[in-house]
Design a protein around this nucleic acid. Structure first.
Length: 441
RNA sequence: CGGGGCAUAGCGCAGCCUGGUAGCGCACCUGCUUUGGGAGCAGGGGGUCGCAAGUUCGAAUCUUGCUGCCCCGACCA
C-alpha cells in the first residue's frame, strides 16, 4: 500500500477523551473512530489488526477441533424466554421491536441460539462431541463504556460452544479450549495467565479467565510468578490426547482474580518472592455450565442405552476487538505502538526520505515491488513529508520494520533497516534489507 | 443509575464573569525557501458557537429545558 493513496487519519495531538494509552494511540494512529459511546468504526489501519487477530483465533480454534459457523446479531426474544434469561439480563440487553411489534434483541451472547440450532439438528450421542464457534459482533448496553474498544458496548467476540454427552467428556472439551487459548494469546505476543474465575451471571461451576498483565488493566489479580515465565504448548500439541497434565501444570500454581482471591491461601502457597499482585486485562473467559441451557431448552440426545439426556455444555469467549487494545497496553513506548509481528497491520514500511529524487524513488519502488510480490504486507511511505515527520509518524504507527531510504545512503548503495521494538538501526544494501525482511517468516 | 465535568473549525483550546455579531496553535490549500527525528516566510479556505425556547434593540456570552460526550463508583469478553 502506498501511503499517499491510503486512508490513515493520524492525529498529532492526544484527543482529550482518551485516558489510557491504548485508546490514545488507537485514535492517534487512525485505527478507530468513535460513532457513539462505546461504539467504534474500525478504520483501515485498525481493521487490518483486527483481521489478523481474528485469523489467529480462527486457526487455533480450528486446530483444537472447533467448527466455525456464523449466527446473526439480531435474535428473537422467545428463545431467551425459554432459557429464562430474557428477564434476568436486564438493561444490558438491547431490546428492539420489528415492524410487526415482535420482540427482538441485539445479541449479547449466543447460548440460546446455538442451543436451539443444536437441539433442532442433533438427536444422537453419536454426533457428540461437537464444538461450534463463530466470530461475531455483540452488543451489551454497558452502564459505562470506557477505555475505547477495551470496554465497548458493541464488540467483536469469538464464542465457542461445546456439546458433550457426559460431564467427564465436557471437561475434555473444556481442556481443549484451555490449551487453545494459551496458544492463541501467545501467538499474538501476549503473556496470558489462566486464573480461577467467578462464573458470573452465565453460571456453572468451572471457569477460567485468561488475563494479560498490564498496568492499566481493569482487574486486580494475584498469581505465582512462575506462571508468567511459562510458555504455551507448541504447535504439535495433540488435542486427541488427554490434556489433563497440561492443564494441571497451569492450574497447580496460585492464580486468581480479585473476586476469587484468598489472601490466606496466597500467602500459604506462594513464597513471598514469587507473589505477584498486579493489574490485568481479561482477554478470554471459558466456562463449563453443564445443562443450564440444554435442560430448560430441551436440548437432548439419545444415549447408547436409548434414554434421552440433556447435553453437557460449555462456552468459551475471546474478546477479539479488545485484543488490539490489550496488545498495545502490553507493547508500546513513549513514541507509540510497537506491534508484535504476528498481528502487525504491516510487517514493514519503506520510508522514502526524499520523494522526487530519481535514485531514491527508484530504490524505494524496487524494494516495494519485490516485497509486495513476495507477499509481504508492506507499506510504502511515498508522501513528500519531511524526514522528521515521517520518523515520528512511523514510530507512532509501530510497524515492526522500517526500511529507511534516503539520497545519502542510496548514493553509497545503502539503505537503513530499523527495528521498531529495539530502535536498532543497521545500514545494508537494498538486497540485504530485502533478504532480512523476507527471512523473518 | 448516583456523584463530578465538558460541549466554540478535523484535533487541542481562548473568548463567556462584565451581551455588540468569533479568535489562537496544529492540521488543510497555494507559492517560495528548506529537506535524516514533528521546518520557515507569505497568502488562503473552513465554524447553524450541541439543540430548543426565553430575556434583550442585540446572545457563543444571561435564564430554563433537552441532548451528547468524558471522568469516579456498582456491572462486564
Amino acid at each position: 500500500m502506498r501511503l499517499s493513496q491510503y486512508f490513515l487519519p493520524i492525529l498529532r495531538d492526544d484527543p482529550k477523551e482518551a485516558e489510557i494509552v491504548s485508546h490514545r494511540l488507537m485514535l492517534r494512529a487512525g485505527m478507530i473512530h468513535q460513532a457513539s459511546a462505546g461504539i467504534y468504526s474500525w478504520l483501515p489501519f485498525g481493521h487490518r489488526v483486527l483481521r489478523k487477530i481474528e485469523q489467529i483465533v480462527r486457526e487455533e480454534q480450528d486446530r483444537a477441533g472447533a467448527i466455525e459457523l456464523l449466527m446473526p446479531t439480531i435474535q428473537p426474544a422467545d428463545i431467551w424466554r425459554e432459557s429464562g434469561r430474557y428477564e434476568d439480563y436486564g438493561k444490558e440487553m438491547l431490546r428492539v421491536t420489528d415492524r410487526h411489534d415482535r420482540e427482538m434483541l441485539y445479541g449479547p451472547t449466543n447460548e440460546e441460539l446455538i442451543t436451539q440450532i443444536f437441539r433442532d439438528s442433533v438427536k444422537s450421542y453419536r454426533d457428540l462431541p461437537r464444538n461450534l464457534y463463530h466470530i461475531q459482533w455483540k452488543f451489551r448496553d454497558e452502564i459505562r463504556p470506557r477505555f475505547g474498544v477495551m470496554r465497548g458496548r458493541e464488540f467483536l467476540m469469538k464464542d465457542a460452544y461445546s456439546f458433550d454427552l457426559t460431564a467427564e467428556d465436557a471437561r475434555k472439551s473444556y481442556n481443549r479450549m484451555f490449551v487453545a487459548y494459551l496458544r492463541t494469546f501467545e501467538r499474538m505476543g501476549l503473556k496470558s495467565i489462566p486464573m480461577f474465575a467467578d462464573t458470573g451471571p452465565i453460571g456453572g461451576d468451572l471457569s477460567h479467565e485468561f488475563i494479560v498483565l498490564a498496568e492499566t488493566g481493569e482487574s486486580q489479580v494475584y498469581c505465582d510468578r512462575d506462571l508468567i515465565e511459562r510458555s504455551a504448548p507448541g504447535e504439535d500439541v495433540d488435542y486427541a490426547l488427554d490434556l489433563g497434565p497440561i492443564i494441571d501444570q497451569w492450574t497447580s500454581k496460585y492464580a486468581a482474580t480479585e473476586e476469587k482471591h484468598d489472601p490466606k491461601r496466597f500467602e500459604a502457597e506462594v513464597p513471598e518472592s514469587s507473589r505477584v499482585s498486579a493489574r490485568g486485562i481479561e482477554v478470554g473467559h471459558i466456562f463449563f455450565f453443564g445443562t443450564k441451557y440444554s435442560e430448560p431448552m430441551n436440548c437432548r440426545v439419545q444415549g447408547p442405552d436409548g434414554s434421552l439426556v440433556a447435553v453437557q455444555c460449555g462456552s468459551y469467549g475471546v474478546g477479539v476487538s479488545r485484543l488490539p487494545a490489550a496488545i498495545i497496553e502490553a507493547s508500546h513506548d513513549e513514541d507509540g505502538i510497537i506491534w508484535p509481528e504476528p498481528v502487525a497491520p504491516y510487517l514493514a514500511v519503506i520510508m522514502n526520505l526524499k520523494t522526487g529524487d530519481t535514485d531514491t524513488d527508484a530504490a524505494c519502488e524496487s524494494l516495494y515491488s519485490q516485497l509486495s510480490n513476495a507477499g509481504i504486507d508492506v507499506l510504502y511511505d511515498d508522501t513528500d513529508e519531511r524526514a522528521g515527520a515521517k520518523f515520528a509518524t512511523m514510530d507512532l504507527l509501530g510497524i515492526p520494520w522500517q526500511i529507511i531510504v534516503g539520497p545519502r545512503g542510496v548514493k553509497q548503495g545503502e539503505v537503513e533497516v530499523k527495528q521498531r521494538a529495539t530502535g536498532e538501526r543497521q545500514s545494508m544494501t537494498p538486497q540485504a534489507a530485502l533478504a532480512r525482511i523476507l527471512n523473518l517468516n
